[in-house]
């Protein structure tokens, strides 16, 4: 583990966004990153995360494909003369249990076709998902667990 890894990442992001590649600016970014991480220190989890690069790339590829597909699906639905939708909220039992995995899954679900995460139960076992087409919740649940959740488990376990 590299010391001050998170501060260094924030410093590099700062340098990229401010567009001035110099040592003082990097140091300034490091100081800002340290202050930010100091402010949120109580919310940070200190679990050790294993990242598998290839699985992570597959997850990103799947995500981009699903985002484009979902935008087309929404476009098709909106432009069709008769909107035939059956919206509803269904519960999705979570297999992932760490906070950052739940956050990631919820965000990915929001950007995929016809689903939008609304809430997480207090015990972090169930995710409530609003579906554009809720006529077959079991199929929707299967899609999520076969797609994103499996890929997340592969990428971070």
């Amino acid at each position: 583990m590299i010391p001050f890894r998170n501060e260094l990442i924030l410093a590099l992001v700062w340098v990229a966004i401010s567009g001035s590649y110099s040592i003082p600016n990097l140091a300034f970014g490091f100081v800002i990153g340290w202050i930010v991480l100091f402010l949120v220190r109580e919310q940070l989890q200190t679990t050790k995360v294993v990242i598998r690069p290839i699985a992570l790339l597959l997850l990103i590829a799947l995500f981009i494909k699903e985002l484009v597909l979902s935008a087309f699906k929404v476009a098709k639905l909106v432009l069709s003369p008769r909107m035939d939708i059956k919206p509803g909220i269904f519960a999705y039992p979570l297999k992932v249990d760490r906070d950052f995995e739940i956050t990631l899954l919820a965000n990915l679900i929001t950007l995929t076709p016809g689903t939008l995460s609304v809430d997480v139960s207090d015990d972090r076992r169930t995710l409530f998902v609003h579906g554009m087409d809720c006529s077959d919740p079991d199929q929707a649940r299967r899609d999520i667990s076969q797609g994103f959740e499996r890929r997340i488990l592969e990428a971070f376990r």
């Binding site: 979902s70 929404v74 939708i85 950007l111 939008l116 609003h130």
Partner: peptide
Amino acid sequence: LRLPDVYTRMHAASKA
């Protein structure tokens, strides 16, 4: 404009 309630509208805004 076309979708019926706030939750379905969110689908359109957040994806497309």
